[in-house]
Amino acid sequence: MSEHHHGHGDDHGHHHDNHLTDMEARVKALETVLTEKGLIDPAAIDAIVDAYETKVGPRNGARVVAKAWSDPGFADWLKRDATAAIASLGFTGRQGEHMRAVFNTSETHNLIVCTLCSCYPWAVLGLPPVWYKAPPYRSRAVIDPRGVLAEFGLELSAEKKVRVWDSTAELRYLVVPERPEGTDGFGEDALAELVTRDSMIGTGLALSPEDVR
């Protein structure tokens, strides 16, 4: 169990052996009490988990980006009214009610964070990764984004502007990465394969065709 990352580096010393056991017991007690009271439906919990395991995830966002790369009219709509443009592809709902798409360019790289909690565009990216919700990323993204990106293996040129979007309200941000070179003539399915989750947070770039061959 101790190899699991639960939001922190391994140097904090709180990954004692019974940590998960404590939480297992705590959550089990909570679920039992609530179920006995008829306040929750365990089958509803299964349905929620299934939705985020199989339906709502970063492949949704990849479809949005691939369409924006392929269709200038859609890209323009996404810039003006991301909520409606994204909804037109069937992606709506919880933590995607109010969307904004921000486009990387040759001059500017965009990075999304929520310094105050864990706001993340669930409707297009699914549930956030542990690191996104943890203190290292939340503390550093706004003061040292280049250092953060370097830890993801992304070194930006010194001239590139960096824009960090702190999700302090109910707007949820999606980064549209730059379309990779060598993708002329690619259809939306092939393009979507190049769009990683991290490229839509801004902690990565879209893959090049060579990366997926």
């Binding site: 990352h5 922190h8 580096g9 391994d10 140097d11 904090h12 985020y52 395991e53 995830g57 310094t115 105050l116 699914g126 549930l127 990764p129 542990v130 690191w131 943890a134 203190p135 290292p136 990323y137 939340r138 503390s139 550093r140 993204a141 706004v142 003061i143 953060v148 830890e151 993801f152 702190d166 991290d198 902690t203």
Partner: peptide
């Protein structure tokens, strides 16, 4: 309210992180 705090350590993104 973590923005700008120091000492929180490396990001340590996990490769192929499970949901």
């Amino acid at each position: 309210d973590l923005g700008g705090q120091h000492g929180m350590g490396p990001i340590a993104p996990e490769r192929n992180e499970p949901i």
